[in-house]
Simulated scan of single mutants.
Amino acid sequence: MSAIKSALVIGGGIAGPVTALALAKAGIQATVHEAHSRGDDVGAMLTVAPNGLAALETVGLREAVEAVGNPLRTMVMEKGNGKPLMNVPGLPGLPLSRVLRRADLFAAIRAGAEAQGVVVHDGQRLTHVEEHPDGVTAHFDDGTTAHADLLVGADGIHSTVRGLIDPAAPGPEYTGLMSFGFGDMRAGFTPGDLDSMHFAFGKRSFYGYWTQPDGSDVFFSNHPREQPMTLAEARAVPKSEWLAELRAAHVGDRPGERLFGSVTEERMLVAGPMERMPKLPHWFRDRMVLVGDAAHAPSSSSGQGASLALESAIELARCLRDIDDLPAALAKYVSLRRPRVEAISEQAVKTNNGKTAGPVAAFVFGLIMPIATRTFLRPEKMFGPVHRFRVDWDERVTA
């Protein structure tokens, strides 16, 4: 039985409610405190991989998330001109990844957590924390406070809790890429399989595209830009200027030139800078600990941001369940998670370097890739260690 009986989870996005559910399963009462008011975040689209679905299954949310996403059967890596380089089908014995709107994932997780008794307080932005020998008191900008044995920062890549744990902690790192999405970002999915998602190394920008079950196209561009911009700065630029820049970048790409040439500004989402968290010296201090993107956000090129956050939520609860000594439990949690998340994040850095390398490097990559896929670069080798990973809830953790 855990020595920790109560927890405050800061952040009501993906990791927060799942952390609260996992803690409840471990015998720890947890409430979630979200800075924003309840509402529909348009967001972009993302993928929950098989390892993320396994984490959701532990807290009873897998079916709810699968119901609002479409199963992805094949990923196709190709040149900017549309010539295939590699087909990556779903791995044998694993459920298919789900592609879904970020807002739909939020909603499914939130509804599932609340149905299981998790209380979520909206409109409570954390301002500061008082630490006591027997717990922590969180102060919010609406004037309210909350007290518990432990405070969990699940407040994303721009985490407030991270700065409270370590004022010298590094912040997010710009990857050199700006992200743009195109499609009906407000519409829900029409149920049905996605036969394939295409990822293309264009002449000047990396892009991806797929056709939804309703026949509409969704696509994106990871556009190299040397000077970083904040999301607010990126969205202050008129969409017409961004769209003109992207159209010029995708001239000669097939079908990129057609997709970017025919789309309207109304179907454009400026997602902003692609960022990642560099290696973080401290994930916890005293009675505060980080989970998910607040500790280990990889860039979106990994396809693993949401899934890794879900894994960490389960692992944290498991360690608190089995190790009575709090510092030892938190240290064990970090030791179990750090090697995996940092390896995946570093691999995504290599992927981003390929996206920003320019037309000459893209041409060389196109020559090498077909040889690699026929010899050593196999889907199981590439994705097996990531997608087949499971946090075994029933296995006991020892310090």
Rank of each mutant, 00 (worst) to 15 (best):
P298F: 03
S221V: 15
S37Y: 04
V76P: 14
E241W: 04
G123E: 03
P385A: 06
V129T: 09
A361I: 13
A362R: 14
G82H: 12
A187R: 08
L330K: 06
G143N: 09
Y333Q: 07
A22L: 00
F199R: 07
G261A: 11
D141W: 05
P50K: 01
R101L: 15
V120I: 15
A15P: 01
L377K: 05
H250K: 05
R318L: 12
D293S: 13
D149W: 06
G60F: 00
L259N: 08
R73P: 14
H250T: 10
S307V: 12
T31D: 06
L105I: 13
R247P: 07
V386E: 03
E233N: 10
P167V: 08
W242G: 13
P224E: 14
N70M: 14
T264C: 00
A313Y: 08
F219C: 12
D322Q: 08
E173D: 11
S302G: 10
T398D: 04
V270Y: 07
G366N: 12
M86V: 13
V42S: 04
M369G: 10
S262R: 13
V341L: 02
P17K: 04
K83C: 11
S300I: 12
V251N: 09
L231C: 07
V161E: 13
W393Y: 02
E57L: 08
G171E: 09
T47K: 05
T211S: 12
K350V: 10
A295H: 11
A154Q: 02
A331R: 09
S221Q: 11
V289Q: 13
G39F: 00
D324S: 13
I314C: 05
A329C: 03
I368T: 12
T58L: 08
P359D: 11
G112M: 04
D322C: 10
T375I: 13
H139N: 06
G303T: 12
T264N: 03
T31H: 02
L46I: 02
Q116R: 15
R337K: 05
M45F: 06
V99N: 14
T175P: 03
M382D: 05
S312R: 08
A331H: 07
P281I: 03
E63G: 14
H250D: 09
R258E: 14
E346S: 08
